[in-house]
Nucleic acid binder design. Structure first.
Lengths: 211, 211
DNA sequence: ACTTTATTGTGAAATATTGCACATGTATAA
DNA sequence: TTATACATGTGCAATATTTCACAATAAAGT
């Protein structure tokens, strides 16, 4: 274990990435993996993998490798994804519905416990996962009742800030924002933006640099 | 302009991010912006903004700031988003539909020109944006006919690799993958993965570190 | 027991990125 | 015209991240 050093953000990002191949391997009945092999699967440098993992305490075995079970357990503990997180979502157009149905969320412990929309035609509708769409003014009472911890925003850009403010007002400290606007937030709260256009821009850039 | 130095990846990422507030400002009738103000809007360091932009050639004006129009033009030129890119999408469940309808893609020059699915019930259906869903075996001929440049994968994990191989076989050099598997690719091709679970993991980590 | 082979953990070097600080240039106003 | 305020561009120092390289350790073979 590397002394009480701060774990680099880049490490956190990669480690979350290691999780998936590890889970696949477990399913295939593999119990031990070397940094070389994991690195190859994730297209990173083997020393990087070892250093990343060593932040969590050296539980690899020299000459042998890492016990995959332990590794998953430790990574989840660090990422705080060793427990359930309750999500509320606002905006139930295609993107919202897609996220609600996203199997990986559930598998990883992210559970939607409430869904909100402002469209009167949608309010009251029953969703496949068993929730009923609520009006957005219910965000505060329901968020508090249900103990929602993360708010997911897939509304139109026009509504995104309003909804965000409601989430914050309800005491929610983290928002995952899919709407293409910059959300203003209190200092104590976190916003993580997902913007596919930016992702495509990066891809287009890399593509245009290719021979 | 900083000499023929390589532009850092981190810069590319940020610069794609600067684009949106800049476009908003133009709409509001603002024509000039300082690095300080842009930095504040994007929550980065002002010197960082200046350095990022200086890679593209110093076209700010000392004592004044940057001309927003020029800035947008130059950024788009660098990112190669100053032109249209043709996209094909495979997998038309909610996520696929959400992406097809995503207004920002269109605005930024990313146009879907074909849609594929393997579900017989879906094939032949007409989509709101005017495309008809094609069977995935049509990927190769249609991709070549239509000149698709980027393949978007929103299929189930089981089909993702097959579809990817079809895209590669059709000569497509870049894939945006929303499916939670690692896509094997030829060396000449690019894959950009989008994984919401990883994004949530990062958010959960940051949340758990808060006081 | 000893040798060989495999693989981790990590200090230290190499590289990359960020931010400071200030010289340099522009505009405005008196 | 001169002073003042403002804002860029960038060398350089400070940080951060990545990679190398090797000692340490474990298992397997002889």
């Amino acid at each position: 274990m590397i002394k009480d050093q701060k774990i680099p953000d880049a490490t956190i990002e990669r480690v979350a990435l290691y999780l998936r191949p590890l889970e696949d391997l477990i399913k295939l009945g593999v119990h031990v993996i070397s940094s070389d092999r994991l690195a190859e699967m994730c297209k990173v440098n083997p020393a990087q993998v070892r250093k990343d993992l060593s932040y969590f305490g050296g539980f690899g075995v020299r000459g042998v490798g890492y016990n995959i079970h332990d590794l998953i357990f430790e990574i989840k503990k660090i990422l705080a994804s060793d427990r359930e997180w309750k999500l509320g979502i606002a905006g139930l157009d295609d993107m919202g519905m897609a996220l609600l149905q996203h199997k990986n969320f559930f598998k990883r412990g992210y559970k939607f416990v409430a869904a909100f929309d402002s469209d009167p035609k949608k309010i009251g509708q029953r969703l496949p996962i068993g929730l009923t769409i609520q009006p957005i003014r219910k965000i505060k009472p329901m968020a508090q009742d249900l103990g929602i911890e993360i708010g997911v925003i897939t509304t139109s850009p026009l509504q995104a800030q309003v909804v965000a403010d409601m989430f914050f007002d309800a005491g929610i400290k983290a928002i995952l924002n899919f709407s293409p606007i910059h959300i203003r937030r209190p200092d104590c709260c976190l916003v993580q933006n997902v913007d596919f256009s930016v992702t495509l821009d990066q891809l287009a850039y890399r593509l245009s640099k290719e021979v």
